[in-house]
Design a protein around this nucleic acid. Structure first.
Length: 606
RNA sequence: GCCUCUAUAGCUUAACGGAUAAAGCAACGGUCUUCUAAACCGUCGAUCUAGGUUCGAUUCCUAGUAGAGGCACCA
């Protein structure tokens, strides 16, 4: 926002250093830590160190010499339009803005751009984010929720940063787990079907757990039990074989039960306001992936060891010419000719690159599959896809429970829907107790917004690569560094505006004037607002929603402090009231923009 | 055995190689006749160990310790 002034000052510094034979290092401008005013600063440690190394520093210690240089520069800079003053502190040259100019620029820009404030310049690349890839025939649990939330916020961030963005989901709808559920259904529950999308989805999970227990070898089995287990196992294998052979009855059963799961998934995604652009199903890339194996064999990337009783494999390290083992060797086709997970991921990547023209492909998948994805990317490279360089595994730590890893077969799973229901229940009880003024008809909707806000934020306030131990109390907390805290800042801003009786949309026509003594709270709030665009860019570049989550909290925190300490409607004069109202509108807008990127809604009341 | 990730306050987490390491929870103490107390203000409290690189290291490198995960016919 002050690039012009910054460049002018940089030029002056460069000229001065050149004239005085000072070996200037690259200037790294940074925000100045705590101060009554704001601005930017750069240190001269590196420059002083360069000097010392060149033997020119007449043995002055580096920090002292840095301060000397900063002081000389200070007297050299002189007056620059828009710049209040320049100071030399601790080896830093600090440039302070004129308070009123800076405030007006920031606030007016936020008001002008509105919902678009912070959007990055349009980029030429297309990014595909693949997330929300649970297996069918299971219910959506809290671990899937982390995946979906991370993926969606990431998609929103890169999209807002200016990339063409495609959201892709890749549910696993085949494999032994799927067959297991179908077997249990067919054998014990045929014809049954609970009503309700979630009840039905969760029921499939119950079937899976039951079936797995029956099929699991026990410690002290009687001969009868062993015989029964083995007979069950034979039935399951037979069903798998029939499915593979395209048996019509089994395929129909598969389609029906699969659809039950997908209906539940779509409902969950709807709750989270996630709109997937492209659905890839594992079953759809199964056949194409076999063709790919032929191509890889032909090009001598894969080796066929089936004649010797082996499988079709890729010796990745060898083909890449690596001396040390890194990617190991991988199987593309089992000895019986069936495909594996890896094979299908290769087929999928080809579709992404060729059909969707994806330049950057982001896989939101938990950390346990990082080896697998590195292998996929390595094979794509061998295969000759230049995009393989821009494939990125967004690896996140997995979600467990205080009592250990989630396990469907032990019935130890926390379902997303249950958490949401609990969240809504808790919010409603608070609402009823302290917000009688909220209309009856609005309560449920607001409770959902807040409950989900708490849950979503708890998932985003931890960096990608860290594990989460899911705890209901922590995840649904409404106090402190939480989603509702940020939503509450929005609500309070809205409350002021409502009481002010101004028409927000026509209020901001004239440039703002902040030519009065701003309080520290106003200064800090405006500074936070000014950082929003660069925060969008950083979060998108680093693929880290946490960066935005942290920012949103800090912005809300600055607003709450401002709200508490600085009167708006009761301001001492009309000019100040006018300026503060604008600041409130701008704050409300930026909080909303930040929450939107975090996939959290902004309720008008709470 | 090899590889990857993690180690910061009692707990959960932040911190482009730079200025006094930042928050939340918990604990303790204040603030509602004033724009919503789901809030604000204050107190207490931390960089795993040993080396190295650097003017400067929580950050980079090496080794160690502790925890998590992964290592060809599962996904």
């Amino acid at each position: 926002m002050f690039t012009k002034e910054q460049q002018l000052i940089e030029t002056k510094i460069a000229e001065f250093c050149a004239a005085n034979d000072i070996p200037l290092a690259e200037l790294k401008w940074m925000p100045i830590p705590f101060s009554g005013e704001w601005g930017f600063g750069a240190s001269f440690f590196q420059t002083a160190a360069n000097e010392a190394r060149a033997g020119k520093g007449n043995k002055t210690p580096v920090p002292k010499r840095a301060q000397e240089i900063a002081e000389r520069l200070k007297s050299q800079i002189g007056d620059v339009d828009g710049i209040g003053r320049v100071d030399a502190v601790n080896g830093y040259l600090n440039v302070y803005f004129k308070t009123s100019d800076y405030a007006a620029r920031v606030v007016d820009e936020a008001l002008r751009a509105g919902a678009e404030f912070g959007r990055g310049a349009e980029k030429s690349e297309t990014v595909m984010v693949e997330y929300a890839q649970p297996n069918t025939h299971h219910s959506f649990h809290i671990g899937h929720a982390r995946n979906a939330i991370l993926g969606e916020t990431l998609a929103r961030l890169v999209e807002f940063a200016g990339y063409k963005t495609i959201r892709a989901s890749y549910p696993g709808d085949l494999g032994l787990g799927v067959i297991t559920v179908m077997w249990a259904y067919e054998k014990f529950y045929k014809g049954q079907e609970p009503t309700g999308v979630h009840e039905r989805g969760q029921w499939l999970l119950k079937l899976y757990a039951e079936a797995t227990n029956m099929l699991e070898k026990k410690e002290n089995e009687t001969p009868e039990e062993t015989a029964q287990r083995e007979s069950y196992e034979a039935e399951r294998r037979e069903m798998y074989r029939k499915w593979d052979a395209g048996d019509e009855y089994i395929r129909n059963l598969w389609n029906t039960t699969r659809e039950w799961s997908l209906e539940e998934l779509r409902d969950v995604l709807d709750m989270l306001d996630i709109n997937i652009d492209v659905w890839f199903y594992e079953s759809e890339v199964d056949e194409p992936s076999k063709v790919i194996v032929d191509e890889l064999l032909e090009r001598n990337i894969a080796d066929d060891e089936r004649p010797n009783g082996g499988a079709v494999i890729v010796k990745i390290d060898e083909k890449l010419g690596l001396k040390k083992a890194k990617y190991n060797t991988n199987v593309l086709l089992r000895s019986d000719g069936t495909t594996l997970y890896l094979t299908k991921d290769l087929a999928l990547a080809k579709v992404k690159f060729e059909q969707y023209h994806v330049d950057r492909s982001v896989y939101v998948v938990d950390v346990r599959q990082s080896m697998h994805l590195q292998q996929v990317f390595a094979i794509l490279k061998l295969w000759g896809f230049p995009q393989s360089e821009k494939c990125y595994h967004l690896s996140y730590g997995f979600v467990s429970l205080p009592e250990g890893a989630m396990s469907a077969r032990r019935g130890r799973v926390v379902l997303f829907k249950d958490v949401v229901d609990e969240a809504v229940k808790r919010v409603l009880s608070v609402e009823v107790a302290k917000r009688a003024e909220i209309p009856e008809g609005e309560r449920e909707k607001i409770a959902k917004q807040i409950g989900l806000g708490a849950l979503v934020y708890s998932m985003l306030s931890v960096d990608n690569n860290r594990d989460i131990v899911f705890n209901m109390e922590d995840a649904l907390s409404f106090d402190g560094r939480t989603g509702p805290y940020i939503q509450n800042a929005y609500v309070r801003a809205n409350s002021i505006l409502r009481k002010s009786a101004i028409e927000v949309s026509t209020f901001n026509l004239k440039p703002s004037s902040f030519n009065y003594d701003l309080t520290m709270h106003e200064i800090e709030l405006i500074e936070k607002i000014s950082h929003f665009p660069q925060t969008v860019e950083q979060a998108a570049n680093e693929y880290r929603p946490l960066v935005m989550a942290t920012y949103a909290y800090e912005l809300a925190n600055a607003f709450h402090s401002f709200y508490h300490a600085v009167p708006v409607l009761q301001a001492e004069d009309e000019n100040i009231k006018h300026a503060r109202l604008k600041l409130v509108i701008a704050s409300k807008q930026v909080i909303e923009n930040a929450l939107r990127l975090l996939d959290i809604q902004s309720p008008e009341m709470m």
